[in-house]
Amino acid sequence: MFDLKGYGWMLWEGLSITLMVGFCSLLLAMVMGLLGAWGKLSRNKAANLTATTYTTVIRGIPELLLLLIIFYGTPTLIQNTAESMGFDILLDFNPFIAGVLTLGFIYGAFATEVFRGAFLAIPKGQGEAARAMGMSRMLAFRRILMPQMWRFALPGLGNVWMVLIKATALVSVIGLEELMRKSYIAMGAIKLPFTLFFAAAMMYLAITAVSMLGQRYVERWANRGIRRA
């Protein structure tokens, strides 16, 4: 169906980098999300304010612009700061690391809301009972709240993953050779833009389809033993 004139392997290579960026970013986003949810639910005013500012700012600015700010802005900012202190350094971001950092940072804000909702969905009595049994806050969090939270967080996390994997296409703008960038490079060689981008689209579609199936499977696993109305 797709005659890619021998450039198909480039797309497969791109696909593997897309998936790698996606997985690493999701991992970072989950760490940021847990931190953010802790901040939002914490009674500490400073943590609360930091987490609220984080989610407010990130969700108000387009991903592409944030990517440009982090990729081009951060090295300049560090260099300028170092210069004013009398150091002369040259910083160069690796596009893979910059992409993962940016995407993880952005989708961490969305994961924050997911985790916050999930923690709030756990009946209050659970935490109180754990405290009454003599567990410390940390222990109650680790033994009682955390394991129960995942069940409520899974649907939201699945959404974050599916939006995130599509957003990896933006990383092509900063030169990382993932699926979009590889298709673009191949276009220069074989002059079949529609065929190439359609093939790339089908690959993204396959990721989405597999993710949807996987999500259903994992949710069923996480909800085993829960009775439904």
Binding site: K166, A167, T168, A169, L170, S172, M180, S183, Y184, M187, K191, L192, P193, F194, T195, F197, F198, A200, A201, Y204, L205, T208, A209
Partner: peptide, 23 residues
């Protein structure tokens, strides 16, 4: 709906902007 929600907007833009050149 599945196609347009399942693929990145950037692919869709390139598909129409660059892809139309093929036709």
């Amino acid at each position: 709906v599945f196609f347009f929600r399942g693929t990145p907007l950037l692919v869709q833009i390139f598909l129409i902007y660059y892809g139309s050149g093929q036709f």
